[in-house]
Design a protein around this nucleic acid. Sequence first.
DNA 1: GAGTCTCATGCGTATTCGGCATGGCAGCCA
DNA 2: TGGCTGCCATGCCGAATACGCATGAGACTC
Lengths: 317, 317
Amino acid sequence: MPNTHETPLPNTRETGPELSSVWLRVFLEVARHGSFTVAARTLGWTQSAVSRQVASLEAALDGGPLFDRLPRGVALTEAGRLLVPYAETVTGALRDARRDLGALREAAGGRLRFGAFATADAALVPHALALFRARHPRVRVVREEGFTPALLDRLTAGHLDLAVVSTTGRAPLESYELHHLLDEPLYVAVPAGHPLAGHEGPVPLGRFADADWISGSPRPEGTLLDAALRQGFSPRVAHVVGEWTAKQGYVAAGLGVTLVPALAAASVRPDITLLRVLDDGAPARAVYAATLRGRSLTPAASAFLDAVREATATIPA
Amino acid sequence: MPNTHETPLPNTRETGPELSSVWLRVFLEVARHGSFTVAARTLGWTQSAVSRQVASLEAALDGGPLFDRLPRGVALTEAGRLLVPYAETVTGALRDARRDLGALREAAGGRLRFGAFATADAALVPHALALFRARHPRVRVVREEGFTPALLDRLTAGHLDLAVVSTTGRAPLESYELHHLLDEPLYVAVPAGHPLAGHEGPVPLGRFADADWISGSPRPEGTLLDAALRQGFSPRVAHVVGEWTAKQGYVAAGLGVTLVPALAAASVRPDITLLRVLDDGAPARAVYAATLRGRSLTPAASAFLDAVREATATIPA
DNA sequence: GAGTCTCATGCGTATTCGGCATGGCAGCCA
DNA sequence: TGGCTGCCATGCCGAATACGCATGAGACTC
């Protein structure tokens, strides 16, 4: 019952008393059988209940009787005949809504939109996606590639449900829900003939303070080379190369060394040697599955997150 | 709550808890405004009521939360987004049903299907129809012509809402609701030169016991000539003529006389004289608007019945 | 850190909604 | 023709529901 303290706004158009979907289902059942008693039996109720349901519906619609009460059962009036298709529309829509929501809940429908940065796509994401598709084949999957900032923007704009991102030093990762996946050890990629190529065990990054570096950016800040800054030296970037494949070519040619995150370790060419960087302190790079803070995950996104976590276990730490 | 005495039939498929249309309207309002509080104000309720409505809907649908509760308002979840079009379908169907029922109730829509026998179509029905169309221009009218028995069959079969019929003596008018319209006096049609043509006042039917009769049927039973039987003589049917216009030709030619019901009195040719039959006893012929017994009239049919009654008043008794 | 804005929830009351039992009406059959 | 039967309507009562009110909890803002 509306309170009387608030003045209804003009757009509160009068729509009459509210209806219950029960009434309409009962109405259709009565219309189908032409009898309150039979409809009651079918619905598992008593005749009196059905009688009241119909009476309530008739009163709520205020369109006169929906049935003529005959000595043997009832028959639809013109008003009743008019109502039938609408009632079917309503009950049908409710049934379909339930069906779709059920599919969504079981991740047997709906969609999953996620993005990932490039090296995550090398092994982590494919593994996770394979797991997910096997478990939830009915979910439509939309995948995007991009760098962490762009992916987060897509997330904020509501175009993604989940993004696999990495922290490269300081990152504006506030207002996101971060599901930690793994901390990537760093490797230094050196040509096969490099003096340290045969070195056993982790190598302190300081050993490369004087090396020529291949990097995707002329400045180390915000990239993997942040780690060098934390080690107290400013790396000399000899060549700015963006593409991972191209970078490998530069390294193999002896033009410099570069940092490789663990996720990309499995995809280096054979004439390059990876040296594990000694991890003394905060991990160089953390990988997260990011979602919007405060927003609930779709069942599909939740299942994909599980799959990513499982896939993480298969990645060598 | 279903009782436990009756075993649900197999076709009682599980559809989950029932929904209230209120919940869906509230849901849409909340979705539109992104806020329980604002939606509550719009709907003229309190915030707590809206909160409960949404909670009830979420529980009934069992598809997880429909909204993410944010520090400032709420936002649809995927499940909520999925529900929106269905909720709009439901509320739209209910709104349309109300609109159509309202139009039906006001006889501002819907249809009227009626039939009438031929002489009623001479003046009574056209007058009534003119009145009705002026008052209810939006009602689609379907008209039929036919003899009383055929019209009643059409009524029984559900093809007509109302039939203007006449009793010609004994008629199988049971199981119909008869709305008496008028009792037609009878006239005897004689050629202008007939000895009684100048007679003043009603004439006893017995005066025509020896006359040649023009009738639509060789036997008087069940026709207007029933009246002759009631007067104690068996009329000699000299010519069997069905069409009213043709009948007039036979009478004008002096081949016989015929009975004319009052409704046709206005449409006789000028070289025929009508003599009022002395009405001593039961009226010769009653005209009714018949509807199905026990069935409620549509508002349009009811309005048409009123119009016929009014039109009746304009017919000379 | 106080203030503010949001939604959630405990409580009390009024309404609604079942089932049950009964009544009324009309057709059927002996 | 009168009892019987089948069907819908309704008074009654207990239980569930739904509202408003008041208050609590959480998070952002200044």
